[in-house]
Computed example of a mutant assay.
Amino acid sequence: MKNLLPILWIFIWLFVFPSLRASEDEYIWNSDMEIHSYGKSPQCMDIPEDLRLCFNVGYRQMLLPNLLGHETIAEVKQQAGSWVPLVHKACHPGTQVLLCSLFAPVCLETRIYPCRRLCEDVRDSCTPIMEAFGFPWPEMLKCDKFPQDDVCISMNSNDTVNSAGPSSVCPPCDNEMDTDVILEHMCASEFAIKAKIKEVKKENLDRQIILQDKRKPVKLGSLKRQDLKKLVLYLKNGADCPCQQLENTGSNYLIMGRWVGKQYILTGIHKWEKSSNEFKKALKKIKSHKCQAFESVL
């Protein structure tokens, strides 16, 4: 029995980064994929509404400690929050299933891990989006850790990728004027500025974005004022994907980015539209909004 039967799958699901290497006094992975606890005994608890990643995932209760060694719901919320933006990008229909099977495993007598195939499918679909924001596929989701010849969580054979697939728009260029989307882009960024675009050039697989001289900081973060004057951004792997904002050099934009390797990469670009209530609300929240700590997704 390689995979869960469809009826069990229906029960389990209706639908950027911590390390898997926990300290020795918490949890370890062994060869048969079981987690051993040296602390709290396993317990079932209701999935709280503010666990955005997994609330309404299709089952009501989760197991703690979870399959990543998190003992408290506070720790689960802190770490899981970093993954919400990736789910919203809709890069694969199994993204939430894969993540919640680890962060909020269904409360059964036997712990059930995600199938290796599910992990590989999500990885192959979502890695390009993660890389566009400067995040690699993390160690915690190294797919060969998961079973392929055992009972495990997979996509139902009737669940296929939407024929339209995820949006072909460059990930940082999502043009949705939505407060949550803007704040999610901000949380994947280190700084935000107001500026107009002077020129866009293709450079290998990327696009180089040169800004006009007038650049107003919204949130500097790690960016220093002296760096702001010579700031050049890169849209990673964005040479050919559509980005409507980069085609209109006459408008002001809210431009967000972060330092990756030896470049500043573009992580978000939204038209500076003060007539939009959603945009005004996002601007007010940007400086005080508390983001989850991104270690090694969206």
Rank of each mutant, 00 (worst) to 15 (best):
Q212E: 13
K219A: 12
L235D: 03
R258V: 01
K202V: 10
N252E: 12
Q212L: 11
D149I: 03
L266N: 01
D150F: 10
K230N: 15
L283A: 09
D240C: 09
W259L: 14
N162G: 07
T249V: 13
I193H: 06
D180T: 13
D150S: 14
T160S: 15
K271H: 08
R258Y: 05
S251Q: 10
C187P: 00
L266E: 00
L183K: 01
P172G: 07
L183T: 01
R258E: 03
L183V: 02
Q208R: 13
F191M: 07
N248V: 11
L211C: 02
G221N: 03
C173A: 08
Y253E: 02
I210R: 03
S189Y: 06
Q226C: 06
N277K: 10
D213E: 14
M256I: 03
E184I: 00
K142W: 09
C173D: 04
N175M: 10
I193G: 08
V161E: 13
N248H: 14
L283G: 04
I182Y: 06
C170G: 09
L141E: 00
K229E: 15
A282P: 00
Q212H: 09
H185V: 02
S157E: 14
K280V: 01
L223M: 07
V260F: 10
P166L: 03
D174I: 11
E184K: 06
H270L: 14
E273F: 10
K194I: 12
A195I: 00
G268I: 06
E176R: 13
V232K: 10
Q148W: 07
Y234D: 04
T160A: 14
N162M: 07
L228D: 07
G261A: 06
K280L: 03
L228M: 09
P171H: 02
K145M: 11
C170Q: 15
E190V: 01
K229N: 13
E278F: 12
L233Q: 02
E247N: 15
F279I: 00
L141P: 00
L246A: 06
A195C: 01
C170Y: 15
K262H: 12
K142D: 11
N252C: 04
L266Y: 01
D174R: 14
L233C: 02
I182L: 10
K224W: 07
K202C: 06
L246G: 08
A195V: 00
I193E: 07
P242I: 01
P217R: 05
M256F: 06
K236W: 14
G257I: 00
W272S: 04
N162V: 04
K229C: 05
S167M: 05
A164Y: 09
K196V: 01
G165Q: 02
K201W: 12
L183E: 05
K214P: 01
D180L: 15
G268V: 06
